[in-house]
Amino acid sequence: MELLFNNRDPVYLQVVKHFKERIATGKLTAGQTIPSRRELASQLNINPNTAQKAYKEMEEQGLIVTEGNSPSRITGDTAILSRIRDELLTEAIDMFLASVRNIEVPPEQLLSLVQRRLESNRSEPSSERGGTE
């Protein structure tokens, strides 16, 4: 697990986001055990308190569950898991919209531009992307 931190966002939230992305892309699945706080800290090269804080945040959001002394797992609650994908997408779209707001482009034109862009992206790097999904 490699993660490059951006120093302007809270580290524990970056860790949470990292987990969400892995869940959304299916690299982490429902019920899968995740590393202990200690392991996570040394894997990501962060301080154990930050790892602790990230896990606490994920527990509060219902992403992971910890029962007694057994290791933490990704939640089995599919409703929460499917919501993560929407949440990440919504967040990314919001950021995108915020950055195009000043250009005042009409929605129809924006949509067609996005579509054209997606198509050209799909045709070009497809040879590299082939096996990921």
Binding site: R38, A41, S42
Partner: peptide, 26 residues
């Protein structure tokens, strides 16, 4: 600083070069 060796301990460190370690600090 990212190992169990500092877990549960209070650490105070001095440095004039924060850049490389800032993600480790509380």
């Amino acid at each position: 600083f990212s190992s169990e060796l500092v877990e549960g301990r209070g650490v105070i460190l001095t440095t004039h070069e924060v850049k490389e370690i800032e993600h480790l600090l509380d």
